[in-house]
Design a protein around this nucleic acid. Structure first.
Lengths: 170, 170
DNA sequence: AGTTTACGTCAGCCTTGTTGACATTCCAAT
DNA sequence: ATTGGAATGTCAACAAGGCTGACGTAAACT
């Protein structure tokens, strides 16, 4: 543990990016960047009775329309009670529609209503605007590196979810 | 807004990384990666009576020993009441020491105790291990891009805090 | 027929964020 | 020297959004 400092600085030097100090800067970059990442949608949601949890649900229902509750549970990594509280309000407010499964009637398939899609657009427009600016500023090679590191940072199961979503809309 | 889809696909093509779909994948990558990023410290903290807020405080006190409460407030972006609750428990448990300022006795300067440094080590070792693996897997160029995009994603004030911390320990 | 799966719900708890009000201490400027 | 304002601490109340545990229903599987 903490072997970065113990490494002889002369060993490789192309491994400079693996020193404890570089790693710590990466950690802090993640912290500060994530704040920016969520700031814009948070501002929009603050006015309504919704929070980040609603945003996440709306995002992934939009991304994979007709997804089941269980599937959403796995993607979001929360308990069904926690998700249910969010879904209940979204359904009650007419942003999400829940349809009983045709083959398996135990399942509920989730869809955004027109109103739900409207809010999703508003939220993701804001979030994409920041991402677009960051991407444009950094350039395509940086973006590729960004993606590579983030994928390597995920838990394997998360990586699977990520890949599955990517396949569904290439 | 949402101009990515409207762009003629043939316009540039080196701008392929700015399509709405690419931006959305970036957004989802941030979401899933941040989960991984916090997973290991969270697991350690779950056993104790501490949470992510304690981890953040400990991290930045370790990073900038002697920092004032106000300074920490700006870095963490929470209210003083929220931070105070966390600091109170950390001080009571003997992980953090608060010293009255010499020049300005209104200020409290914060330091980790030996025990606090021990916990900080344990937490950051876990977090660095994941970051190191991700960095090593992705390679130095990817890491550079990762850093570039994250910095471009920060709010300007966060960017300042980030840079200031970087200068303090180059 | 019995078991498992998918989902919903009630109740209660914890962390971590918020606002508002108020006290204290002390620097700095008038 | 007094006063205004800044930095800090604290009390109270509240909300979002996690969690566990228990229970119920309906459908599907074996």
């Amino acid at each position: 543990m903490a072997d970065g400092r113990m490494m002889a600085p002369s060993s490789g030097d192309s491994l400079l990016f693996l020193t404890d100090e570089q790693l710590r800067q990466g950690i802090e970059a993640m912290f500060f960047a994530y704040r920016g990442f969520t700031a814009d949608p948070d501002r929009i949601l603050a006015d309504m009775a919704y929070g980040r949890a609603h945003h996440r649900a709306i995002h992934f229902i939009n991304r994979a329309p007709g997804t089941t509750v269980n599937n959403l549970l796995n993607i979001l990594g929360v308990t069904k009670q926690s998700l249910n509280r969010v879904l209940r309000t979204l359904i009650a407010d007419g942003l999400v529609q829940s349809k009983v499964g045709r083959n398996d009637k135990r399942e509920r398939h989730l869809f955004l209503t027109d109103e739900g899609r409207k809010l999703e657009q508003e939220l993701s427009d804001a979030q994409r605007a920041r991402m677009r600016l960051a991407f444009r500023t950094a350039g395509p090679e940086a973006v590729a590196g960004f993606r590579t590191v983030l994928e390597a940072m995920m838990d394997p199961e998360m990586r699977q979810s990520f890949d599955r979503l990517r396949e569904s809309a290439p």
